[in-house]
Every structure is written in structure tokens, then in C-alpha cells.
Amino acid sequence: MNRYYGLFMGTAIPFKHLKKIIRKFNYDYYDKASPERQQHFIEIIPEFHISHSNYPHHRVECIMVEPAFLNRFLEIINNLNFTFILCHYSHGHFQTTMNGNELSVTCYRSLEDIVYLILEDEEDIDRKFANQLLTLPLEKQFACAPGIKKSEDYQHLLDTWVKEVLAYPAKNA
């Protein structure tokens, strides 16, 4: 069974509708498939980056998609009002310190070889950086770049992004 992360990024993710879609794929397709067929399904582990949205108190379950229906699943998801990025299962963590704040990010690599850095809120103790991110347009709330492979390139992307976020209000005041 292949496993991927599904990054859900948006300002108002329609969880009620999303859960209906997940139920359809998990219960109507996966649960009714033979054990032999189930072994070939793709498991998508949801990860959320939500700005100005009510995150549900309960977790959204993994999504089980048969490879033959992956394109249809992506088509359905991409027609909703948020961004969905399918990423490789393996990911990493990077840290930086700016203005005395230690910040950590989780790194995801999309199937198209684009790296995404998402802030880990729990590391931002006073929430200054996290709160500042929420004032920015969604596309500025994470960092991304194609083809990064070396640790120093990840670190450069992180440091550059944090500096841009910290400078953003000054540029646009």
C-alpha cells in the first residue's frame, strides 16, 4: 500500500463536504473491495494548514483511494475552495531563530518535486509569528520551492521566508 500526505490549505475548508467525499471513497470503495484489491489502495494522510477557518475538534480520517480512481479523487478535491497538494510520505523538520524566536517547520515534498515548509505552531511559544502569518494572503503563509535537495537549501528557503514574513507589514504599510 502506498502512503502519501494530503496537504489541505485554505481559508475556509468545507469539512462537512470533505467528510462526505472521504466517506464515499473509504466506505463505498475501500470497505467493499476484496482484501486483495485493498492492498493496492493508496492511503492519504490528511494534514491541514487553515487560515481563518473553524478546524473541527475531531480528526479527519485517512483517505483510501484506489489507484484507478486517484485522478477522479484529485479532480473532486481540486474543485473545492482550497488547495490540495499530494506529497510523499517522508518529510523533515527544520528550525531557525529570528528576533529571539525559535521557529520550526515541517517539510513536505509534492509528487511534482516542490518542497513546502509549513510552520509548526506549537514551537511558536508566544504565537507572534503564527499570528502575523494569519494576516498575510494564504500563498505567503508557507514557503515553497522546486527541486530542493540539500540541507543548506532548505535552511536558506526557511530563513528567507521568515525574513519576508517579518518584513511584510513594513513593505505594505
Rank of each mutant, 00 (worst) to 15 (best):
C87Q: 00
D113I: 04
Q39A: 06
R109K: 15
I114H: 10
K140M: 12
C107V: 13
P137H: 08
A143W: 01
R3T: 10
T135I: 02
K32G: 06
V65H: 03
D124I: 08
N131E: 13
Y29N: 06
A12D: 15
V65P: 00
F69C: 06
S53E: 05
N78R: 12
P56I: 04
F82H: 01
F8H: 08
V105S: 04
T160V: 14
D31V: 07
F84L: 14
P14Q: 08
Y55C: 01
E75I: 05
I114Y: 11
Q95N: 15
I44G: 13
T96F: 00
G10V: 14
F8D: 05
I125R: 11
A130C: 06
N78T: 05
D121C: 04
N81E: 14
I50Y: 10
K128Y: 10
I21K: 08
R23D: 11
L74F: 02
P169L: 10
A173S: 11
M98R: 14
G6S: 12
N54G: 06
L80H: 00
G147P: 05
F15P: 01
K20I: 02
K19T: 10
Y154N: 09
T97K: 15
K19P: 07
N2Y: 03
K150P: 03
L119G: 04
D113C: 07
G100L: 03
N131P: 02
D121Y: 14
L86Q: 12
L7Q: 03
M64Q: 13
T83K: 09
H93S: 11
T96C: 08
K140Y: 01
H93E: 15
L133N: 06
E164Y: 08
M1G: 00
S104Y: 07
K171L: 12
L157E: 09
L157G: 05
L119R: 04
E152V: 09
C144M: 14
D126G: 04
L7S: 03
Y108Q: 13
I50F: 08
T11H: 12
H88N: 14
E47D: 13
A173D: 15
P35K: 14
D159E: 10
D124P: 07
E66Q: 05
L133D: 05
I125G: 04
R127L: 01
E75A: 07
E102C: 09
A130P: 08
L166Q: 05
V60F: 09
A130D: 09
N78P: 05
D31S: 11
D121W: 06
Y27M: 10
F69P: 02
N79F: 04
R37Q: 13
I45V: 03
I125Q: 07
K150N: 07
N78S: 10
K140R: 13
E164C: 00
Y4F: 06
L119V: 07
N172D: 08
K24H: 09
Y55D: 06
E139C: 07
A130T: 11
E102A: 00
Q38K: 15
P137S: 13
Q155G: 04
I63E: 02
C62F: 13
P14A: 11
M9V: 15
I148N: 09
F129M: 01
E61F: 05
